[in-house]
Amino acid sequence: MSDLLPAPAGPWLLLGSSGQIGSALLPLLKAAGYLVVAPSRQELDLRDLRALAIYLSDLQPAGILNAAAYTTVDRAESEPAPAWTLNAELPALLAAYATQQQIRLLHYSSDYVYGDDSGQWLDEQQPLAPQSVYARSKAAGDQAVLAANANALILRTSWVYAADGQNFLCTMLRLMRQQAQLQIVADQIGAPTPAALVATVSLRLLAAPVSGVLNLASRGSCSWYQFAKAILDLARQQGVSGLCCQHISEIPSSVWPAPARRPLNSRLNVTAMEQLLGERLPDWQQGLQQTFQQWLALQATS
């Protein structure tokens, strides 16, 4: 793919800037010359779709990046309304507006929409079989975007994490300082994907006339158990202080019941993305190494 094109004039609207992908994307957009408007939750309540419609009319953005989502997967089972508003109705509104104004829309989706337990690599044509309220709301959002806006780009990611915030890496490093024994699910398989990778690729795709659905994840795959083991190995190698975890046990999902069912298979086929970029995406181990170094740097300054 060619180098970045000049950023278009006018403000780009970034929703979800406090989340993992949004917070990684915001500084990259600014560095690339984009004028970005990233309202906080206090400035714009995305659950209020009428307020959002007014906001769009006033701002008249040159493009929209929707990294906002309802991601409390288990709570969505008992409180489906906010999940449906943020994950389905909000993207539908954005897609309709982008079509009307003829502007770009980049929307982020999830491996959960595939709902697969087969163990096969999942390409973008895989039939959707969402297994939870969260997954069904994300799938409905994808379908609404595609129906309303033929030029929209949807990036489906999996197992996104970062050096800070609420994610598997940070949770494991906290628990490894608190507990001598950990039990981690070993029958859910995917590719841990740094938010920084998602943001970097997103920026490149904004400079190209790309539309439709693309998978975006690290190369390779592992279980949550294997991911946790890799984190512990790195923590030991880097001499992280306060570690007390001595052993990690692998358990099946059935031993760790949750209100929402998780797909056992989240292996995303990224061939189409790699062909578009003209290069291989990094392996999940490489991404972990880089993100762990960022975590260490944050610890040193906190």
Rank of each mutant, 00 (worst) to 15 (best):
Y114M: 02
T72Q: 15
L4A: 09
E124M: 07
A53D: 08
I184E: 01
G119R: 14
L52T: 09
P6L: 01
D48N: 14
R50I: 02
R136Q: 07
G22M: 10
S57T: 13
V270W: 04
Q20R: 04
D233I: 08
Q285L: 11
L173S: 08
A217R: 12
Q20H: 01
S118R: 10
L28P: 03
S57Y: 15
Y112G: 11
I21K: 02
T271F: 03
W121N: 01
P6K: 02
A163P: 01
A208F: 12
A150F: 09
A191I: 08
D74L: 07
E79T: 00
V210A: 01
A191M: 12
P82N: 06
A272Q: 07
Y108I: 11
A272T: 05
S109N: 12
V198F: 04
P8V: 11
D142P: 01
V201K: 09
A32Q: 03
S253A: 15
N167G: 02
E43C: 13
A31T: 13
T157R: 11
K229R: 14
Q20F: 02
P192W: 10
L25Y: 04
T99M: 09
Q101V: 13
A96L: 15
Y108G: 03
L232H: 04
Y114F: 14
D233Y: 06
Q178R: 14
Y134W: 11
S158M: 13
S2I: 10
V270T: 04
P80E: 08
P259Q: 06
Q131I: 03
Y108C: 03
G278L: 15
S241L: 05
L205E: 06
D48E: 10
R261T: 10
L296D: 03
A129P: 05
M176P: 04
A196C: 07
Y97P: 02
W121T: 00
E77V: 05
